[in-house]
Simulated assay, not measured.
Amino acid sequence: MKDLLIRSATEADFNAMWDIFHTHVAEGETYAFEPGISREEGYDYWFAPRASTFVAVQTLAPHDRRGRERVLGMCKLQPNQVGRGAHVANASYMVSPYAQGVGIGHMLGEHSIGEARRLGYLAMQFNYVVSTNEVAIHLWKRLGFAIVGTLPKAYRHRRLGYVDAYVMYRLLDDPARWPLPEPAPEEDD
């Protein structure tokens, strides 16, 4: 897609992000949020304190100095756990229904892997990939993720009822190159 870039999200992007988020949540097929989630809760999700949030934008008029853009998708990275699990990133992604099938999800996925490495994460984990979301599962496998666990009937799909959800994982670097953990403090006798 022409004139597409991925950049850090700002508050000014949230109206467009909310439209994408609200559409996906209302479909009830890929995210666990209830359709009645408030705009404020949606904002808090995408702009959580420990999150790095990005948008894929298309410049509407590349020669126009006003720089008008259209948000086509978004992703956020954050630690999957606190403390001793914070070296593993977690990520969430959404692409506008009007921009699906043109590679935006793939671009966001590649970008987030690079950003996760840049931010010092050693691995990435998706905690809850709905098993019927075949497009996402195929994309994550192409980007090196593997299904490492199945949560039986963990997702209440709007049309299909209870379906499985997957945990997907990938290393971002060879564990042999990971920094050594801090040694345990010595105990006094």
Rank of each mutant, 00 (worst) to 15 (best):
M1R: 13
K2D: 15
L4W: 03
L4E: 02
L4M: 05
L4R: 04
I6S: 00
S8M: 02
S8G: 03
D13W: 08
F14A: 06
A16L: 06
W18N: 04
W18E: 01
W18M: 03
I20G: 00
I20S: 00
F21L: 05
H22Q: 13
V25E: 03
A26F: 04
G28K: 04
E29F: 08
T30N: 05
F33T: 04
F33L: 03
F33A: 04
F33Y: 08
F33K: 06
S38W: 03
S38P: 06
S38H: 05
R39Y: 12
Y43W: 11
W46F: 01
R50H: 12
F54G: 02
V55E: 00
A56T: 04
A56K: 01
A56V: 03
T59N: 04
G67W: 06
R68K: 15
R70T: 09
L72I: 05
L72T: 11
C75W: 01
L77N: 04
G83V: 09
R84K: 14
R84V: 13
A86D: 02
V88A: 10
A89Y: 11
A89L: 07
A91K: 03
A91T: 12
S92V: 07
Y93Q: 08
M94I: 04
V95D: 00
V95N: 07
S96V: 06
Y98T: 12
A99W: 05
V102M: 13
H106Q: 14
H106R: 14
M107G: 07
G109A: 14
H111R: 01
S112A: 14
I113D: 04
R117V: 10
R117S: 03
R118Y: 04
L119I: 05
L122H: 13
L122Y: 11
M124D: 00
Q125L: 11
Y128S: 03
V129F: 02
N133L: 12
E134C: 10
V135A: 14
H138N: 10
W140P: 12
K141V: 09
K141S: 11
L143A: 00
F145P: 03
A146S: 15
A146N: 15
I147P: 12
I147F: 01
I147D: 05
V148I: 12
G149N: 09
L151W: 07
P152D: 07
K153Y: 14
R158N: 12
R159K: 15
V163H: 03
D164R: 08
D164Q: 09
Y166I: 12
Y169S: 08
D173Y: 10
D174Q: 12
P183H: 14
A184R: 10
P185A: 15
P185D: 15
E186K: 00
